[in-house]
Design a protein around this nucleic acid. Sequence first.
DNA 1: CAATATACGTCAGTGTTGTTGACATATCTC
DNA 2: GAGATATGTCAACAACACTGACGTATATTG
Lengths: 198, 198
Amino acid sequence: MSPDVTRQSTLATGPDPLSLSEEEDGQAESGPAPEGVTNDLVELLFFAYRDFVGDPDRMLAEYGFGRAHHRVLHFVYHYPGLTIAELLDILRITKQSLNRVLKDLIEQGHIVQKTGRSDRRQRLLYCSETGATLTAELTRVQVRRVARAIADPVADEPTGARDGNGFAAAQGFLMAMIEPEERAAVTSLMARRARSRR
Amino acid sequence: MSPDVTRQSTLATGPDPLSLSEEEDGQAESGPAPEGVTNDLVELLFFAYRDFVGDPDRMLAEYGFGRAHHRVLHFVYHYPGLTIAELLDILRITKQSLNRVLKDLIEQGHIVQKTGRSDRRQRLLYCSETGATLTAELTRVQVRRVARAIADPVADEPTGARDGNGFAAAQGFLMAMIEPEERAAVTSLMARRARSRR
DNA sequence: CAATATACGTCAGTGTTGTTGACATATCTC
DNA sequence: GAGATATGTCAACAACACTGACGTATATTG
């Protein structure tokens, strides 16, 4: 509880210090963003992304692959014929990093290279049958999560703020992206901040 | 371009194969989700999150800290008095992993520990003045990005799909979370998939 | 009070994924 | 043919996660 804090000199223990302090609300014509809500969105994005990549992570682990492999598979699957340079630009990693995981995927036959037609220096990347099957499975669970979050956003009571703008929508979407069993924990955590702000 | 594909036997190079194939649209009463749009959201989430953590990453790098330090600072800052166990549950990492970064932050005086009052085994975590100042700065840029994305979502033309549900809203929000200079690249990438799907 | 459980810290080893720097090879462009 | 470009590779290193094992302080319980 927040009264446990003894206001020691060097400690900045105040209820969610500074936070936003009438942060620039970028021309939001329907009133300024309530300070706490945006903080919630920042954290919801963290939790949502964690669960979003959690499913694929677990599935890939069974193949001995990691998240880096997933990203390569994903973009090669969805954009067949991608070149190395394009993939590097998408992933924003070094070619050495890419090559390590790409080599795994090629050796295991999930991705194949084809020499470019117009430019024979290029190695166009494609998924093999097995790579496509695997990636389709990964995509399926991620698409399902997103589609459900869009279709059934979680109604927000904690903040209570009924803002016609996108705050409530974004919050509902992100909360719905979180694993259902974990939503209560997230909600009660954020309620703790809201409480200490009173 | 997709006609570059020569339909080799072992290659699954079709235009965005399987993808969704009338994926379960979980009781979406306003029509099923167009297959491509949800795929876009999956990728937008990747790009949005990348830029979302990019700013703090760069700022922390100057202090010799990384993303793990940021996460600890963030939650200790926003939830002063957090215990180790609570933090572990939030971050979902092992105590060894936490301890490594936490030790850095404590040694450098950004975080302080206080023995719990009711339970003297607990180490309650608080930000020091410097830790609070640093974290407030990190929070500021993240909150600004989110607040702007909510206030000025990016209108979607690429998909053209005008769906009253949350798809357009989510897409606009996530696209607005992406660094402005990079949006064109993302849009043209996803247009490439849409093109190959015709 | 003694036994057990809990909260936390730490040592040691390992794996994934990122980095930098240097260098090689094939191919395209001028 | 010279130089730029696309890709591959070797080596070293760092951040951040993991497992397993063990130690200490404090709380709880029979």
